[in-house]
Amino acid sequence: MTVAEGKPGIVVLGSPRSGTTLLRRLLDAHPSIACPPETYLLSAAARFLHADQFAAGLRIGVVDGLAFAGFEEAEVLGRLRSMTFGFLRDYAERAGKPRWAEKTAFDAFHLAGIRRLCEGHVKFVCIQRHGLDVVASLRDLVDKTGGYVEELHAYVRRYPEPLEAMARAWIDTATAIAELAESSEHAISLRYEDLSADPQAQMQRVFEFLDEPWDDELVGRALAGTGQVGFGDWKTYARASVDRSSVDRWKALPAPVQDKLARICNPTLERLGYERIDVDEEADDPETARRRYEFGLMFNRMKGSQE
């Protein structure tokens, strides 16, 4: 770590809808850590660093542009880091705490830029969740907001079935986060399912990694507080305890949807230590699919006649 003053900042990373807001509340309950609601600072900084690279190998972006003006990459990154971390340091100071943490769910889509900016200067706390549960929860988010955030646009354009688009987005973000967790000694990884099953044990592990003392009241304190209002998963604020009601939600998806998503997600699920989902290997032929559709219509008629 190169942070001269005190302990390094903390960056929470997880695919959107992986329990990052719950993790934020738990971190913020620590007497030494201030974690604001989503600031979008790091994803904005990552966008600032974005460059296009063309066939000749020339990168066109701010770092390379400023290089022609005599500013080395390290200086550009240093200035950007100073501004970005400065907001978070000031926030922590206002909260009367010595250490900041940052969590914005959609940061996971900007991991390359965030790593470039932050690696060596922060500790990363990574959280993973079962991909099909992420998809089910993302679908809820899209239903509530009525649209897709910019980070999902490329997926929705490429995959016309929205749930597949969300599954592909989960694979990319979860894989990028796993690669970070596997390669960096300054990163720790936990799973939402383990956190919701035993928040005390998981958070004890996290605070040990962060070199912060543990206190047994922390989880209760985190969930009793309403926390500062801001961007983040609204559902967590309605909960006064950590429960497992959001685990295995995917099992309520229609079986053919489960099969399709499982085929797409199984390799990544296994990589992350989740159980492989059994799939029906007998794909429907067009005649069977048509017959199933006919039955669906007949059931609707049967239900209609009962009402």
């Binding site: 229609p254 069977t288 199933r292 039955f295 059931f299």
Partner: peptide
Amino acid sequence: DSFELASLMVWLE
């Protein structure tokens, strides 16, 4: 649910 029931009908056939 009705989706699974439709699959059941196909399976029965």
